[in-house]
Nucleic acid binder design. Structure first.
Lengths: 192, 192
DNA sequence: CATATTTCTTGATATAGATCAACGTTTCAA
DNA sequence: TTGAAACGTTGATCTATATCAAGAAATATG
């Protein structure tokens, strides 16, 4: 597990995990692998894990009554993953979490996660700040969905899209931007 | 301030503020009033306060380049209010926070808010949980905006809309549901 | 490597909901 | 209380983007 210390340390920044405790903290994690197309969690299930991504790209999406996937977000190297609301509330998820590429992740279960806050009260501050960041990010996306048309969403997304994400099929990116693959393709063409 | 103890206590649930501390805690707050149509915060300003609403309804919105208001959310009796991201990061806000009715609120400033977490470490847990709830709520709204058409958004909203909100001009509700007042009016008619 | 499957592109058409316009109704301020 | 302003309704259009269709390109699989 030691080889993953840097990844975990970065993921939890700015929290400083004391030198004395980091070996103990590493014990919380286990490595899991998922192959492309497999599901970490499916709709209806409870999310039992909290993840840090080592390799690969994953997507969270919902399935609408007419069967289209609507992508809510992506996760990749060095970031957290999981169906966070289901995990926190230990209640059934409405989402799918799918590995879009072969993936390797670290995970801990709910009991371990909860014990973090008991064992190390300073994690509460980390939790507060991380939730705050996530919240700001979600509101940002909401504003973009509301105020921008397809062209603007495409342009803004492309400007700040990390390379990794461009390796997944375009239909997932299109869905994340709340447009059809056809529209995405036309936005793309427009540039050249 | 003592007369507001119940409101504050409820707002911060499930956090238990120890009997010994609650008088001290009450000292953090001051009462402010805003008349209908006035702004608690305007775009460009930094939000200096964190609010608990005693009376009235407030809306958060952004102004698009073509000058339409896009309502992001409402706050009312017993709930928190403020431009939370600007407040937390002490950076300029892109939002307007407007009193839609005459309003009375409790507020504390950023220094006081920060000191809460230093003086009372148990507030970190409260902060973590509150941010978690807010996050879940925002994702919920995002999913509804993405997956539902105007009719569905209207129906779902009406089913769970608190009475208070129906007193504000319909154009604000329409904007919150990401539709024009005309469309809102037509959705309304459809029912009867 | 070959071919089956999935993804991407391009054009033609359809449609939800926006926009525009005009009028009725409510709210507000003097 | 009254006139002016803001808000709500209704109908006629317009438009961005979805949907449908069909072929081309890429990718996966035996």
């Amino acid at each position: 597990m030691k080889e993953h210390y840097e990844v975990i340390k970065n993921a939890f920044r700015p929290l400083e995990i004391g030198e004395d405790r980091h070996l103990e903290f590493l014990e919380f994690w286990e490595v899991v692998e998922y192959s492309k197309g497999s599901f970490l969690t499916e709709s209806g299930q409870v999310e039992h894990y909290f993840y840090v991504v080592l390799e690969g790209v994953q997507a969270v999406y919902i399935l609408t009554p007419n069967g289209d996937k609507k992508v809510i977000g992506f996760s990749f190297d060095g970031r957290f993953s999981g169906i966070y609301d289901s995990f926190l509330k230990a209640s059934g998820s409405h989402y799918f979490l799918e590995a879009l590429t072969d993936s390797k992740l670290l995970r801990m279960n709910k009991a371990q996660y909860d014990s973090l806050f008991e064992l190390y009260p300073e994690f509460n501050e980390w939790g507060r700040v991380v939730h705050q960041e996530l919240l700001i990010g979600r509101v940002q996306r909401e504003v973009e969905l509301i105020t921008m048309d397809a062209k603007e969403r495409f342009d803004v997304f492309m400007k700040r899209c990390p390379e990794k994400l461009l390796t997944v099929p375009q239909k997932y990116l299109a869905s994340y931007l709340n447009m059809t693959p056809e529209t995405f393709s036309r936005m793309r063409k427009r540039i050249s």
